[in-house]
Nucleic acid binder design. Structure first.
Lengths: 101, 101
DNA sequence: TCCCTAATTAGGAATATTCCTAATTGCAAG
DNA sequence: CTTGCAATTAGGAATATTCCTAATTAGGGA
């Protein structure tokens, strides 16, 4: 949940997610769409993978990344709950989150 | 859009948003729900305000924060587009986003 | 094996975030 | 005006993010 919204908080990562809407793409093809180095894009892809938003599939030398709709739906579920479009839940009491380090 | 997802990327801010689901709350009441200093919470409230997710209303000495559902819906719209629940849009070409400082 | 292409990992600099304490602002009441 | 409470702003330290170049891993073909 944390990594999910954190992954979506960067414009480049949101754009990658949007690109994958129409189907899986190779790492290199994604990197080519940006004015950034390939390793930087790899870093963003790792963040998206960590969040469960994409999954890599190797095919020979190329690695294709596929969008994981379920993770997008998970984020949507949170927002729907907030917006009242879904079933309401009591005010959260999760004190576990206020940490530093 | 940027500030919106960035605001939602922090667990404390998401928890504040969830708290406001049931109605406006005073800054002090929000701060009291966390193991953090009041100024820290003020900072988070400023981030949420910047993102359009909350709006402050002064009433005497207290300032109450109200949840702005429209901002939540804006974030939801993005995710629905990604998930294919909404109308599809072409692959974004917004090159404006890949910058550094 | 050796070489080429695809992609990732490693290390580090610039920048941004997060959180604290101290000082300040804004409002109400005596 | 002074006091007191509610809340914010200011300044700064610890930490995290972002992005780069250089080095490395992994697979395919001669």
């Amino acid at each position: 949940m944390n990594t999910l919204f954190k992954a979506l908080s960067h414009p480049v990562r949101r754009r990658i997610v949007a690109m994958l809407r129409s189907g899986p793409l190779a790492s290199g093809d994604i990197a080519a769409a940006f004015d950034m180095s390939w390793p930087t894009i790899t870093g963003h892809l790792n963040a998206l993978k960590e969040a469960g938003l994409v999954s890599p599939e190797r095919d020979g030398q190329t690695i294709r990344y596929r969008l994981e709709i379920s993770a997008v739906e998970e984020a949507m579920a949170f927002l729907m709950d907030i917006a009242g479009t879904g079933k309401p839940s009591p005010i959260p009491t999760t004190k576990t989150e206020g940490s530093r380090g």
